[in-house]
């Protein structure tokens, strides 16, 4: 399986993922009123994964 990677697109995607992570934190606080160490670890793992996925979605629009 080939894993595409484009550095400039990944940087853009990372900012989008970061913004989504902030929204996620706010949502967690609204719903549960507390943060736990699990949330911190989960976000640290999920944010780069999400950034990679978003960057692949950006690449769908590239013309070969």
């Amino acid at each position: 399986m080939f894993f595409p990677f484009n550095k400039s697109k990944f940087e853009k995607a990372f900012w989008v993922a970061f913004l989504l992570a902030i929204l996620g934190w706010v949502l967690i606080y609204i719903l549960w009123g507390e943060f736990t160490p699990s949330d911190i670890i989960g976000m640290l793992v999920a944010t780069p994964l999400m950034a990679y996925m978003i960057h692949v979605l950006f690449m769908f629009n590239d013309k070969e």
Partner: peptide, 24 residues
């Protein structure tokens, strides 16, 4: 009320694990 750090673990590691599995 009030913010409690390190309280009842919600969402649990199980839920986070499932979320990450789905994300992968």
């Amino acid at each position: 009320g009030g913010l409690v750090i390190g309280g009842n673990p919600v969402p649990t590691m199980t839920q986070w694990g499932l979320f990450l599995f789905g994300l992968v």
